[in-house]
Design a protein around this nucleic acid. Structure first.
Lengths: 246, 246
DNA sequence: CGCGGTCACTGGTTATAACCAGTTGTTCTG
DNA sequence: CAGAACAACTGGTTATAACCAGTGACCGCG
């Protein structure tokens, strides 16, 4: 059998090879369960008669869309599910449970450390004054959904590092006498940085939902700043829901 | 001078070539103004002594992050600015003006057409009943910010296609006796599809903020469905802001 | 039996090359 | 002078190739 050869642009049918392969791989993935492995890249290039770079391109697109997951040395796997969250001062754990998932939290970092400018400014820290830095991976059914990076006031929370930080942070703040009463936050779409991507098990550059949050405690308006945080959610496993009226 | 040659992995300094080049290109872009062109890919490979695929990789990352913009046949350009929107029933135009941008709207499609299942379901259309389909590109200072794809009820709006659709759609609905009183929407991060990417002048796969919206009119609760829409916003030019309290 | 090394696999990076398709500017012809 | 054709540029796609680094299984040695 004579092999047809191509150095660029669309195939005979007018469709780009990587787009066609992408669809083919989607179909292949649908016959598998979450966590199951696809054939390796070199196998796929034999199976579909394309170059490895075309295979990688098709897989990269699917990885970015959250349909596939790649692990160096191990392979490429079928991906997971999604949570929809209403915007309110609810805990991650409650949201996950409401959606039928089993939440858990892995504390990656809990330390006193010098905060970035935005956090220092919100927490009204002067000079090189340190703040608590918590970096936590939030999971649903043991699959990563978000990375929360929080900076907290050491003045208000002298014993924070002695607390159990694997549950709701807001519950911990409340039990310490500092319930979060008000939050200002922004939401945007972004591309996952390399280290966040690794934690969330997504490709660097995959779309993520990014929250920047400034939290306040105390009864007065606007309240005393207590937390500055950046939360990064996997786009395939988390979205926001709301009702607006006038 | 002897050319050093590499077939993979990190350079002598331990840093991946495409990451180093990415930083170098960021610096180069900072010396330019939005809209100004970078040197072409083949020039960049000469300038930085890397292969074209490495140049393309570095540029792709910056395009995905919204820092650069690529146009086939024309070149690669420095990118634009950002709007922050509070979640409310405000118009796109008002939001843009509030942020100091000059809004405009380009109507790409305005037709009667068969709606997708989700739109038909919301609008309570039966069988093959058509709906109005509006596809509009929303711009700020003549640069694309979002693509709005709306499906509207022909029953409530018999003369919609005769209206001026380059302003606020909600104002048109209001003037037709059907003010939007309530909206249910979800927000997620997603990767731009090829056709949306083209309209928004971003790379296919770049992160975008995706709104799915169900709008209701009329005084009763929940109201009469009048619009189903999907809006896709460039992540580098649009984000959401909110205050939550308890 | 346990640990370390090797091998065969995995994905990741980078190279050169070829070709396609879009854009723009210049030149030639009617 | 206007339009068409051509050339030189642009980014986009795909190929083959080489090498790197991670993973897991298997084998050999202590």
């Amino acid at each position: 059998m004579e092999k047809t050869h191509s150095d660029g642009s669309a195939s005979a049918s007018g469709e780009l090879k990587h787009l066609r392969l992408r669809r083919q791989l989607q179909e292949l993935a649908q016959e598998l369960k979450p966590g199951e492995a696809l054939p390796g890249e070199r196998q796929l290039e034999e199976m579909f008669g394309v170059s490895r770079i075309t295979v990688r391109r098709a897989i990269s697109d699917l990885v970015r869309d959250g349909e596939l997951v790649r692990e160096k040395g191990k392979g490429t796997f079928v991906s997971h599910g999604m949570v929809r969250s209403v915007l309110h001062l609810a805990s991650f754990n409650d949201d996950m449970r409401a959606a039928g998932f089993q939440p858990s939290t892995r504390v990656i970092t809990a330390e006193l450390s010098e905060p970035p400018e935005a956090a220092a400014s919100h927490l009204r820290l002067t000079g090189d004054a340190p703040a608590y830095r918590l970096r936590r991976l939030r999971l649903a059914n043991n699959a990563p959904v978000s990375v929360d990076e929080s900076w907290l006031s050491p003045e208000l929370l002298p014993n924070l590092l002695a607390e159990d930080l694997t549950g709701s942070l807001y519950r911990v703040l409340s039990a310490s006498g500092h319930p979060v009463r008000r939050v200002q936050q922004t939401v945007q779409a972004s591309a996952a940085s390399a280290d966040i991507a690794r934690l969330l098990e997504i490709a660097p550059g995959a779309p993520v939902l990014l929250f920047h949050r400034r939290s306040f405690t105390g009864p007065e308006e606007p309240g005393t700043p207590i937390e500055y945080s950046i939360s990064t959610y996997r786009s395939d496993r988390y979205q926001i829901s709301m009702t607006l009226a006038q």
